[in-house]
Write a protein that binds this DNA or RNA. Sequence first.
DNA 1: AATGAATGAGGTTTCATTCAT
DNA 2: TATGAATGAAACCTCATTCAT
Lengths: 210, 210, 210, 210
Amino acid sequence: MLKKLTDEQQEKLLMTAVAEFGSKGPERAAVSEIARRSGISVGVIYKYYKNKEALFDACLARSTDMLKGMIAEAVDPEDSLAEACENLIRTCISFARKNAPYIQMYHAITHEPGERAAYYAETIEKYTSEIYTGIIGKAQEEGIVRSDIDPAYLAFFFDNLLMMLHFDSGCRYYNERRKFYIGAEYDDDKMTEQMMLFVKGAFGIREPEV
Amino acid sequence: MLKKLTDEQQEKLLMTAVAEFGSKGPERAAVSEIARRSGISVGVIYKYYKNKEALFDACLARSTDMLKGMIAEAVDPEDSLAEACENLIRTCISFARKNAPYIQMYHAITHEPGERAAYYAETIEKYTSEIYTGIIGKAQEEGIVRSDIDPAYLAFFFDNLLMMLHFDSGCRYYNERRKFYIGAEYDDDKMTEQMMLFVKGAFGIREPEV
Amino acid sequence: MLKKLTDEQQEKLLMTAVAEFGSKGPERAAVSEIARRSGISVGVIYKYYKNKEALFDACLARSTDMLKGMIAEAVDPEDSLAEACENLIRTCISFARKNAPYIQMYHAITHEPGERAAYYAETIEKYTSEIYTGIIGKAQEEGIVRSDIDPAYLAFFFDNLLMMLHFDSGCRYYNERRKFYIGAEYDDDKMTEQMMLFVKGAFGIREPEV
Amino acid sequence: MLKKLTDEQQEKLLMTAVAEFGSKGPERAAVSEIARRSGISVGVIYKYYKNKEALFDACLARSTDMLKGMIAEAVDPEDSLAEACENLIRTCISFARKNAPYIQMYHAITHEPGERAAYYAETIEKYTSEIYTGIIGKAQEEGIVRSDIDPAYLAFFFDNLLMMLHFDSGCRYYNERRKFYIGAEYDDDKMTEQMMLFVKGAFGIREPEV
DNA sequence: AATGAATGAGGTTTCATTCAT
DNA sequence: TATGAATGAAACCTCATTCAT
């Protein structure tokens, strides 16, 4: 690994690549364009990354890091389950809007057909699944959440909904799709409120005592 | 009149193309490979389809037709909401397992970044959104479903869960991801049962009959 | 050689081919299009003509026949030289306008780089050169035309001018080019008159009769 | 800064392309063949020229530049009309023999059937037509040239003859054709002399001095 | 014998990767 | 060492020609 690119340059390169890969997809994104946009020569990219795929992988890694960071920030062990859910929902929505390229990269991961899929799933989903399952399992034990559902499934369905929340904001198709369901005039608070109602019902959350 | 591609050959071409586009995406899928795998020449593909994009569109149309057909078959106006949900869940699961290429194709659509996304979304989501919103709205009016949630959102969240059910079976990443939540030993009935519990809670379904 | 195509069909095929080759050039003209337009199947074209090139050759042959026929009709042994010239000029102009495809084919011949050029030159130019040189030589002997120029050169320059007259009407480039010289409002009679003045001066024609 | 195609390499590329386009026409000339003959890769051609058409256009521009340059050099404002004509004739003949590819290229342009023909015609013919018409018109005013012919037509017929002079040397067909008129033993001086006699007669040039 | 669908070689163009400077 | 021009494999697409029916 060389050390001639400053950290800022490396960062810019990665961000540019994320944006290119995210918006155009891994095929249509051109290394030369990424070089041009980031003000770095093609040659140096190949010094830092073996090939286009390695650059793509780095972008994926960066994106999953960001997603994990977002989750980590959103979850506070002190929160009640309802608070945790609402925080996650709000955080997902705002993160996705501000970081569309990461979301698109994330979606690109889900499109991977080969063995890499397993690797990437492990990188990110293992982390979130443990967090969510833990939170929900604890809430079940505390009697706050219905106990007739496997907490793993509860966590799974909940994360499914969060993933879709991401894609709604970051990916064109999902964004269009959402319009057919809830119309074009979208509002974050309405979405949060409705999803909270849905989730609370699904979880059988009993508002704890005052 | 000359030989002409038999119906089976045409069907094989389309299925091969669906599989290629679904697994590799529209960019990486090669027309020449589709030809080779279909056992026909490149030229004949261009007789039946103007260009690669037209072939992709045909694959898309086929996939959406299949998905819509699946939904249409699953929904019976006589069903109670709970029955309808269970039918949809079971149908999605079994369809996705038997028709992974269609699901992958569907996922490939969701990956499209440009204007085509809007067109594709209209092709399929408009149809399902109207069906689900209709069913749920009616159930609300009948007092079977909680009325404090907008039926459009209920339908939206429900379809989100169904989409993920599709992808779980059809796409590698989602399949791996599921393992982190509910373990490797997956079972259709368990999934159906758990999801029904989740959904019923979310919908606030009151079992109508005594 | 088969005999299943009627004479009219053969004629139609050839005319269609001339028009296609003439307007699109030998490369862009497509055999299948010629077949479609002439109402004859591709297969039968290949029964009558070994390949596309042979069809092109037949079109060339037809075009040179027409050109020769035109010349033959225009020249009357009884005519004075001036009359002969004017007849040729007028005939070239009207023929070219009515038979643009033949002219374009003729131009295509002139574009041939290989040995075929020699063959085609012989087919048509030998014929015209002998006619023109004969007419002019005779006029020289009769003292009607200046005798200080080689009649072969006189014939050559005169035919050069006639060729250009053809191309002016039949070929797009020459047509545009003419506009830069004499403006867009072209008139056959003016052209004839001006060219006759030019030629008479060049030939040093002394009006014989009183 | 990297190697980059040297000026000689660029020149060689263009000359090779001129030769290919000139001899085979824009359709039959293959970019890969031009690359091979130039000793460079296909890709680099597309760095310098957007596509095949742009390369053709560059060849055209080069050819017309050469032709215009030739005309510009041949014409001296001090010359008498007869001198100007003789210079042009001699220059055309020698230029065409030394630069057959440019001439073939020029002929290829005249073969273009579509709208481009108009553009090409403007590029070159506008220039020469104005020069010739100017020279001849002035000579008419000075009483050196007959005034009963429109100077535009005089210039037109004269340029027709010059064009043919070009093609005679540069294009196979015209070269063969010439033999039928004036025999195989061609001689530049004889051609010049005969054409001068022809043109002087046509123009009605009165030798001014003495 | 006639048809016209199928073939597949060959052309244009792109872009990941290399490497001379 | 960094550059970015050059490379050339590989993709799309066309259409002359063949040949099963």
